[in-house]
Amino acid sequence: MKFRMIRFQKFSAFMNMAIDEAIMESIRSGTSLPTIRFYGWSPSAISIGFFQGLLNEVNLDACQQAGVDVVRRLTGGGAVYHDSDGEVTYSILGPVEIFPQKILDSYRVICSDILFALQLLGIQANFEPINDLTVDGKKISGNAQTRRSGVLLQHGTILYKVDVETMFSLLNVSKEKISDKLISSVKKRVTSVDSYSSAPIQDFFEAMEKGFSRDREIIYAEYTAEELSRARQLAEQKYSTNNWIGMR
């Protein structure tokens, strides 16, 4: 199966979510190949899951003070702090038929590419259902998936370095969620690549590309002009609007 791979670039939170939707449309219409893209966030941002309550999850005043954008994703799952310098986000998009039909199976298959990438850096991570990757029981990657009109989108983040002080100053983390995992401090729940590997971030990018290239015919390419144009429209008219961000 041929996949287009688009190398790491940074966009705003609104454009990142809009690009995913624009690519879903172009795959649906048959104008683009299944796609794997790597991207960062500039400025840093919080993304919240489709079903999350904005005010429940995000300290909006702290975000505003820190210049951190807030966006709602097309996918479910939890709130994520996307540090502009501390993580890589990927999206994999394609017709649903090319992925396992069962949702949990497709998480496992796609996340195995990330496990492979981390292994290249000497990091032994584990897939922890439903949608997390952990190292020594600490979360290093969160992933989320949606399937809309025949196209699957899974995106996820892999932490390269983590600024827990900033992360938890911006998020409202519920005590219910913490107590379930029997961990006294939320700071003990997350880790990052730089805690286990001295690899420079460029090596991390390359490992991610290798991980997602396994068993796939990769064609390196860019976003099409039509995708970027559509994404700008979606960013302006949907993802940056209060109607969308504050939907729940």
Binding site: F51, Q52, G76, R148
Partner: peptide, 15 residues
């Protein structure tokens, strides 16, 4: 009723 959280529902709009 409003239901929120970090769960997944496919299709999402069914919430």
């Amino acid at each position: 009723v409003k239901i929120t959280g970090d769960f997944f529902l496919h299709p999402e709009e069914l919430i």
